[in-house]
């Protein structure tokens, strides 16, 4: 019996956002196969063959299976890393750790031994087959590229979006000179969180003055950016050719600088996207090869939109919750394009 067309959801077991989409697909009667590369190979088995016409085979968990050639779309959410534990010989250091996109990226700095090799093989085999899945939202390789902030700024400017002046440096003198030359400036990390012994710390966008900058800038890459005066911010979620814009207005000092710093002090409303911004975003996402993006804009008091940031795998569930924008349905539509 031929298996029905199925949507693959690649994520860990605790992912409320993926749950929303699976619930919607289930409501539509679309079969879903959810799995996590971190479960490979113990609880996620694979067998596939290539006969010159395409890959055919099966992915299997203890509870269900899917034929590779029945997968009509893939939703890339928050999969864990390949972390094969062979239990044989020198397994090498734990390869687990935080990572960006790229299907189940394996290994960490200094990892070695049998387990590292086995994890790399897992990525090459299963990861390679998953990479061949049609119609990812988003394609993992594209996401990995698009996650780089310097790539985003350059792509935004090419597309015609206004962008803040930005410096990335390890040079304290360059940082001081750049910040001193601006009316106001912020420090903005590339990665907004850090694990500490007693829990996770968050690093939000923060105002900075030239006098504050010291030689500790030399320890790693630091990003300084021109502060754009804002009337409000917009979180623009793009799914295919559909735009869902939410106006975010901070009610506290922290939320006005970076709304992530104080979610309880943010007001939400549906916003309109100017035609020129819409066209530029379309060009930018085509340039980056993305079908989905969560984009952050500052809207100045004069109404001009400035691009700040893009997350190719950004959260949207809470935006839908506050505004009623039908983002989940749009994602379900995009994942089942070939079925309609």
């Amino acid at each position: 019996m031929t298996q029905p067309d199925t949507v693959l959801v690649l994520t860990g077991r605790l992912d409320a956002t993926a749950d929303l989409v699976i619930t919607e697909l289930d409501r539509r009667g679309v079969p879903v196969f959810r799995c996590d590369p971190a479960d490979f190979p113990g609880r996620l088995a694979l067998s596939a063959r290539f006969d010159g016409a395409g890959w055919a085979g099966t992915l299997r968990t203890p509870y269900r299976s899917v034929e590779l050639d029945r997968i009509v779309g893939g939703y890339y959410r928050r999969p864990g890393r390949f972390a094969v534990r062979t239990g044989v010989g020198d397994g090498g250091p734990d390869a687990a750790g935080a990572g960006g996109a790229g299907i189940g990226r394996s290994g960490g700095a200094g990892a070695g031994g049998v387990d590292e090799w086995a994890s790399a093989e897992a990525r090459g085999g299963l990861g390679g087959l998953l990479a061949a899945v049609p119609r990812w939202l988003n394609d993992p390789g594209r996401m990995e590229h698009a996650e780089y902030k310097p790539v985003q700024l350059a792509a935004a400017a090419r597309a015609g979006l206004a962008t803040p002046r930005t410096l990335i440096t390890t040079d304290p003198d360059a940082a001081r000179e750049f910040v001193a030359g601006l009316a106001r400036a912020v420090y903005k990390p590339f990665r907004g969180s850090m694990r500490a012994a007693d829990g996770t710390r968050f690093i939000y966008t923060s105002p900075v003055t030239a006098a504050e900058i010291d030689d500790s800038v030399a320890h790693t890459a630091h990003q300084f950016q021109e502060w754009i005066d804002k009337d409000h911010e917009v979180r623009l979620t793009v799914v295919g050719d559909r735009y869902f814009a939410a106006r975010l207005t901070g009610r506290s000092a922290d939320a006005r600088v970076d709304w992530r710093a104080d979610y309880d002090a943010v007001d939400y409303a549906v916003a309109e996207v100017p035609g020129s911004v819409r066209a530029a975003v379309r060009a930018m996402l085509a340039d980056l090869g993305l079908r989905f993006a969560a984009m952050d804009f500052v809207v100045r008091p004069d109404g001009r939109w400035y691009f700040l940031d893009l997350n190719p795998n950004g959260q949207w569930g809470w935006i839908e919750h506050h505004t009623g924008l039908p983002i989940c349905a749009a994602i379900a539509d995009a994942l089942t394009t070939s079925l309609r």
């Binding site: 605790l14 956002t17 619930t23 971190a38 997350n311 809470w318």
Partner: peptide, 28 residues
């Protein structure tokens, strides 16, 4: 369903949700 629970919105907020390997028991 988790999505009907108050935890869901916290976990959906802005990509800062904890990674699954931090908070989920994978001992099966």
């Amino acid at each position: 369903p988790l999505i009907d629970h108050r935890l869901a919105q916290t976990l959906q907020t802005s990509g800062e949700s904890p990674r699954e390997d931090e908070i989920f028991d994978k001992s099966f």
